[in-house]
């Protein structure tokens, strides 16, 4: 599965760089991430209890950062495994300073999904991954803006995990004004989560 696109972050490039390399931010911004530890500067390991509606599963994953050119670009390799299957992928991420205080992120990656996830989750894979990429990244952009605001106000940034419903609600609200045809940014961790979450869908019957 190929994933590619771009997105504008509302903050300077260095801030975006710091944000996407900060496991604390990532784990709080993404509900279900139980831990995300920095093993080294290039490697993170984490457990995530992924939940999409009734669907849930415990995944452990590894994230490797390589080809780093701060704050311009890096390559991410992810490897996640859990009861429902596995996700494996590599992506190249590029951050472009747009000169107006925003940062353009371009991303391009290829993702392999296997196991039950792949074999019974196809009906919604595309939809869910897009939807969850959107939700996860909107939240990250918020965290970014909070950091920027906190800095200008000379206070500590508050990074608080929203509840899953708040998370979704906030995203949905933000979404209302957005042009529907635009594509959303991508960070590998988020995509792993998004896809893992997205892929776990099936159902034959109807109604809960």
């Amino acid at each position: 599965m190929e994933i590619a696109g771009e997105y504008v972050f509302h903050g300077p490039r260095e801030e975006v760089w710091d944000l996407v390399r900060d496991p604390d931010v990532l784990s709080t911004a993404l509900p279900g991430a139980q831990k995300l530890e920095k093993v080294s500067d290039q490697e993170y390991v984490g457990d995530m209890n992924i939940r999409v509606g009734p669907v849930s599963g415990l995944f452990s994953g590894k994230l490797l950062v390589s080809n780093e050119v701060p704050p311009e670009s890096y390559t991410l390799t992810v490897d996640g495994k859990g009861g429902p299957g596995f996700v494996k992928g590599t992506g190249d991420v590029q951050l472009v300073d747009q000169g107006d205080g925003t940062t353009l992120m371009k991303y391009e990656g290829d993702m392999q999904i296997g196991g039950t996830l792949a074999s019974v989750g196809q009906r919604m894979l595309d939809t869910v991954s897009r939807s969850l990429i959107r939700q996860g990244l909107e939240t990250l952009d918020k965290a970014l803006q909070e950091r920027v605001a906190a800095r200008s106000e000379g206070r500590e940034a508050k990074v608080e995990a929203p509840t899953e419903t708040e998370f979704a609600a906030a995203v949905a609200k933000d979404m209302a004004g957005e042009a529907l045809s635009s594509r959303w940014l991508w960070i590998a961790v988020v995509v792993v989560i998004a896809i893992v979450r997205g892929a776990v869908i099936l159902t034959s019957g109807r109604g809960g």
Partner: peptide, 9 residues
């Protein structure tokens, strides 16, 4: 709100 997601807590 999204795939399998509503405002129900």
């Amino acid at each position: 709100l999204g795939m399998f997601m509503t405002v129900i807590e």
